[in-house]
């Protein structure tokens, strides 16, 4: 079982969280013309990297907040967690 450090509540069990997908996907700008390929990439196409990956998780049974988690997909090591609106350098 993973232990995830919620930026609001502290270290909690993975049981309290729900996975929310890739956190690096950016929605195309509003009112901008987008190609079908760009829309496909936004809605469906995902990479499946081995190694460090930025993910969205929701602390569903805790503070109910969405957070970003930097996790190694191979070892499950968690390097950092951020608030959802935090910019990551």
């Amino acid at each position: 079982m993973l232990h995830i450090k919620c930026p609001h509540c502290g270290i909690r069990s993975q049981n309290e969280f729900s996975y929310g997908g890739d956190a690096t996907v950016k929605r195309p700008e509003l009112n901008k013309e987008v190609t079908d390929q760009e829309w496909d990439n936004f809605v469906y196409n995902r990479v499946s990297p081995r190694g460090k990956h930025l993910e969205l998780w929701q602390h569903l049974s805790g503070c109910r907040q969405w957070i970003k988690v930097e996790r190694d997909t191979a070892t499950h090591e968690i390097f950092n967690t951020y608030k959802a609106n935090e910019e990551i350098a």
Binding site: M1, C9, R12, S13, N15, E16, S61, G62, C63
Partner: peptide, 20 residues
Amino acid sequence: CPFNFGELEKNQSLNSTYNG
């Protein structure tokens, strides 16, 4: 409940799960 109750003190609260 998966919470670490060793760190919970009087007049504190938490949200978590109990048997899901």
